[in-house]
Computed example of a mutant assay.
Amino acid sequence: MKKFKLQILGIFTMILMSLTLFSCDQTDSSDSNQATSRFMVKMTDAPGDYDQVNVEVLDVMIKGNSDSGENGWISVGDKTQVGEGKIYDLLKLTGGTNIMLTDSLIPSGKLGQIRLVLGDENTVVVGGKSFNLTTPSAQQSGLKLLVNQTLMAGSTYEFLLDFDVNKSIVTTGNTGFILKPVIRASTMEASGVIKGVVSPAVDYQVLASVQKGENIFSAFVKIDDKDGDTTDGDGTFQINGIPPGTYTLTLTPNPTSGKTPITVANVIVVNGQTTDVGNVTFP
């Protein structure tokens, strides 16, 4: 009888230990699942040859994998910055200016894609006249940007969505314009920035660019408007999302200006930092 009682006690002890271990595993798994990373998305643009380019931003969404399907998307947009009626003039987001679309905590781990969802209230202003920007049906569900990055718990990740206005707007006639967003996504952790000022501020288009292999990273210089008002064009430029390395910066003026390109050698770019080349003077 005593032996039987000892066997029962042993079985009871094993069951209790098993339950305890299961509880610990569940707690550890829960804590792991709750690990988060700070996730920031900003939108910026390089100057384009328009008076205004107004886009309606409805949402920012993320997905943990690179699958092209519609399942698994999570909305993370800051509702004070995105949603119906949240319209931004991209040409005001130049020279280092940007708008924060979200600053939130998201589950750590694999981040496969970011989706920028645009609305229908998109317009372009040319010569003082406003025209609707129609959006192809294939892009109405949002522009998907592959990032494929692992977010570490407790770390901060800042993504910059850089519009290329001149490539994003397609002219279909004298009064027809289509919005086909061309956006490059970069992170401060994996890229750097070059900024500077063309002095004196010019009234013609100047392209600032650097090249790494076959890839060209560029931005237009903010120029004086056609009325000679320098408040909208201070000659600044900022090239975002550049891989680390040493570059030759080229400033290429519009051929009609009669000016020749200028180069600045040995510009060093470091991850997470901004390299300021200062004033660059055109003769």
Rank of each mutant, 00 (worst) to 15 (best):
N71L: 09
D59K: 12
G272A: 06
F131C: 09
K226M: 14
N266G: 03
G241Y: 03
I106A: 10
F4P: 00
T97L: 13
A190D: 13
V117F: 10
T187Y: 01
I183R: 05
I262L: 15
T260H: 10
D164T: 07
T171Q: 15
N174Y: 06
L16P: 00
I114T: 07
Q273H: 02
N254S: 14
F163M: 13
N266Q: 14
L118E: 02
F12K: 09
N279R: 09
V269R: 00
Y247C: 01
S66I: 12
P136D: 04
M43V: 15
T44G: 07
L19E: 11
N65A: 05
D162H: 08
L251I: 10
Y247I: 01
V41Y: 02
K226V: 14
T250E: 08
L101G: 05
Y157K: 04
L249G: 01
I62A: 08
N271A: 14
I239A: 01
V269Y: 00
S199P: 00
N174E: 11
L145F: 07
L19D: 11
I268E: 12
L118P: 02
G96V: 01
N54W: 13
A46I: 04
K226S: 15
I62Q: 04
D120P: 05
D67G: 11
L9K: 14
K42C: 04
P200F: 13
A201S: 14
K3F: 11
D276F: 02
Q52G: 00
A153R: 08
R115V: 11
M152W: 03
G233C: 08
D67V: 08
T175A: 10
T246D: 02
G85K: 02
F237W: 05
A35D: 10
R115S: 15
N279F: 07
V277R: 00
Q211F: 05
G245A: 06
D229K: 10
V269L: 02
I268Y: 00
K222L: 06
D164C: 01
L249Q: 02
W73A: 10
D45A: 15
N148L: 09
E84P: 07
D59P: 06
L9Y: 12
G127E: 09
G83T: 06
N279T: 12
T135F: 03
S186L: 04
S75H: 11
K42D: 13
V147R: 02
L143C: 03
I169T: 06
V210K: 01
G196D: 03
V264F: 01
N122Y: 07
T275R: 06
D67C: 03
G85N: 09
T248F: 08
M17K: 07
S130A: 14
E56T: 07
K259N: 11
S218K: 10
I87E: 10
K226I: 15
G176Y: 05
I62W: 04
I178S: 04
I62H: 05
L58A: 00
V125G: 01
T20G: 14
I194C: 03
V147S: 07
G142C: 06
S199C: 06
V267N: 00
V197C: 01
E189T: 12
V165C: 08
T134M: 12
K42A: 10
Q52V: 06
T281W: 07
V193G: 01
M152H: 09
Q149R: 11
G96M: 07
V206R: 06
F159C: 00
A35T: 13
Y204R: 11
P253L: 11
N215H: 11
F159H: 01
Q149E: 15
V57A: 09
G96A: 03
